[in-house]
Design a protein around this nucleic acid. Structure first.
Length: 585
RNA sequence: CGGGGCGUAGCGCAGUCUGGUUAGCGCACCUGCCUUGGGAGCAGGGGGCCGGAGGUUCGAAUCCUCUCGCCCCGACCA
């Protein structure tokens, strides 16, 4: 392919709207252009990268027995209404009406349509299992598109769906996908982790995400270097750091106008881990008191999984519900109040200071082993009858804390690392969440009607490309992994007006063509400096540099974009040398 | 949706606070000469509804009101 025939509008300067490295380099390298917020045009080079990634995906999906098909991007509302998602999903779904006034939406994912097809076409256990996938456009009216193509309103997604007769089958399909994903991302030259993830609103039991480490990522994962534990921080667990108990009597202390953990800690001269941080939350079915150790932070997602959607209580609500000003609330004298209390596991033992539920007072020496009780009615009765007066609070022990870097792994005790990552793929065990409402059932051997067990599995090819750039670049530009580079080789005839140079370039083109290697030749009548800069920026893995000076000695030069190493050799051996390099990769 | 920033030539920016020649600089672009191993040099040239609308004023890129767009942080993310 000739450079002069391709639209590759490279930029010398960094565009002001780009922040992420991959975003900057994709724009500067002439890969993409922005049409509007979250909407991008793929230029020829980027399209080639996407095609290479999609080819790898297809090969690996086909290899596990999945079949490719293509579904509409415009959907009738009815299917989505049947699963309840028409109402459950808010502004993120693009909605419209057709000319007859019928409600329609644009596909943000395809569980409904795939399940609809399964309901129509799959009848018997003999039809199962099936794995169907497509590489198609998805549309989501994102609240905040960001970081170039990492979060857009329209994007390509490989989504596949498995249909099995039973859980064993689902587990097999799930495992096959996990293996395929490992092969895909490895072949794409990415560093990545498979981590446990929150099944969330997809509605399922098990879920994993495939995460590529990058500072541009929106997610964070916790990693154990020793045992391999890895999880999204949305659900990652760790051993809370342990501190020696500081002895203190059980007594009230006057703490006028001293409210936050930091203030009380300073006032009493005690470290923050000696405190119980009490937060009043308003959940759908009432107020919830969350107790954390003073050095901990409440984890919103973990908490939501326990009490559902919630918000922090306002100051006047605290006064109304607990009868005390914010800043002095705590687990004391809570036993008669009809408020759920959820306490962080780290508070199970030790001695603590917390608000006394009395203005300007805190209480020292709270001993959860004595003053807290697990959630059973018995203690309440005993307390009320005066037999166990020391119990102040009925608690449920839960993991509701945010984990931190270097805390200990719960399985092996090694320090955990936290990494920012780009989510490049995910796999979910859906179960019957979609097959039941859409009546996707089959007849089993016994002749009874049973819902199909489903799984769903996604990959964002553009995110794979972005992650590859994030992980492979230098001050001069992109360094593509060979497998997904737009071209394998870039030929740089430094002067297109020099006959010897052109002749040598032609020779190499012919040889590369003969070997089926995809190459680009920079045939532009430009100064060498420009060609070198563009070559490095666009990131094609190998450069064959043909200059008059080396040619006088019968030599041309091969440069490895990644290592910057160069090798001089006669033109007729160049192509074989390149092939050897490519095989080594 | 909340907070912040920015809209001036294709790109990157100055000018705006403190209103006043013909709105400026670098890069890119066009013509010519010259040059050809890391974004050359010289000479000449084209390109602007200063995001949009309304207002204040003798006069608005500049002040006021409204509005649209883009980016960043947060919320959201099926």
């Amino acid at each position: 392919m000739k450079y002069s025939k391709l639209l590759i509008p490279t930029l010398k300067e960094t565009p002001s709207e780009a922040e992420a490295v991959s975003h900057i380099l994709m724009i500067r390298g002439g890969y993409i252009r922005q049409l509007a917020a979250g909407l991008y045009i793929s230029l020829p080079l980027f399209l080639r990268v996407m095609e290479k990634i999609n080819t790898i995906i297809r090969q690996e999906m086909n290899r596990i027995g999945a079949q490719e098909l293509s579904l509409p991007v415009l959907h009738p509302a009815e299917v989505w209404q049947k699963t309840g998602r028409w109402d459950a999903i808010g502004d993120e779904m693009f909605r419209l009406r057709d000319r007859t006034g019928r409600d329609m939406c644009l596909a943000m994912t395809h569980e409904e349509i795939m399940t609809w097809l399964a309901a129509k076409e799959l009848r018997s256990y003999r039809d199962l299992p099936q794995m169907w996938y497509q590489i198609q456009t998805k549309l989501r009216d994102e609240a905040r598109p960001k970081s170039g193509i990492l979060r857009t309103r329209e994007f390509i997604m490989k989504d596949s769906y498995s249909f099995d007769a039973d859980l064993d089958g689902l587990n097999k399909s799930y495992e096959l996908h996990a293996q395929a994903y490992h092969r895909i991302f490895t072949r794409c030259g990415l560093l990545f982790y498979q981590v446990e993830s929150d099944p969330g609103m997809m509605g399922g039991s098990t879920a994993h995400e495939f995460m590529a480490p990058s500072d541009a990522g929106e997610d964070e994962i916790a990693l154990c270097g020793r045992c391999g534990y890895s999880a999204n921080v949305e659900l990652a667990v760790s051993q809370p750091p342990e501190y020696p108990t500081i002895d203190m009597p059980f007594e009230e202390v006057h703490t006028p106008e001293v409210k936050t953990v930091a203030e009380v800690s300073k006032f009493l001269g005690l470290p923050s881990h000696c405190f119980i941080k009490s937060l009043l939350l308003i959940a759908k079915d009432g107020a919830v008191l969350a107790l954390l150790r003073g050095d901990e932070e409440l984890h919103e997602d973990k908490t939501k999984r326990i009490i559902g959607q919630y918000r922090p209580a306002h100051k006047d609500e605290i006064r109304e519900i607990l009868g005390v000003e914010a800043g002095f609330i705590g687990p004391i004298n809570m036993i008669n109040k009809e408020i759920r209390v959820i306490a962080s596991n780290s508070l199970k033992s030790g001695l603590y200071v917390s608000g006394a539920n009395k203005k300007d007072y805190h209480i020292k020496g709270i001993n959860p082993e004595i003053h807290f009780s697990t959630n059973n009615k018995e203690h309440k009765t005993l307390k009320l009858s005066g037999k166990m007066p020391e119990v102040h609070c009925l608690v449920v022990w839960r993991d509701i804390r945010v984990i931190r870097e270097d805390e200990r792994c719960v399985t092996c005790g090694a320090p955990l690392k936290i990494r920012k990552v780009i989510e490049i793929g995910n796999i979910f065990k859906l179960g019957v969440k979609y097959s039941v409402p859409l009546n996707a059932v089959y007849l089993n051997k016994e002749g009874s009607e049973v819902p199909i067990i489903m799984g769903s599995y996604g990959i964002g090819p553009a995110r794979v490309a972005a992650a590859a750039i994030e992980q492979n670049n230098d001050e001069n530009g992109i360094i593509w992994p060979m497998s997904i580079a737009p071209f394998s080789v870039l030929i740089l005839p430094l002067s297109v007006s020099d006959d010897e140079t052109t002749k040598a370039a032609d020779l190499i083109c012919t040889a590369l063509n003969g070997k089926g290697i995809d190459f680009l030749i920079d045939d532009r009548d430009m100064r060498p400096g420009i060609k070198f800069k563009d070559a490095d920026l666009t990131g094609i893995p190998y450069q064959i540099i043909i200059g008059a000076k080396n040619l006088k000695d019968g030599l041309i030069e091969i440069k490895d974009r990644r290592t910057k190493e160069t090798m001089k050799m006669p033109p007729d051996t160049t192509v074989d040398y390149i092939i050897r390099l490519m095989v080594m990769l």
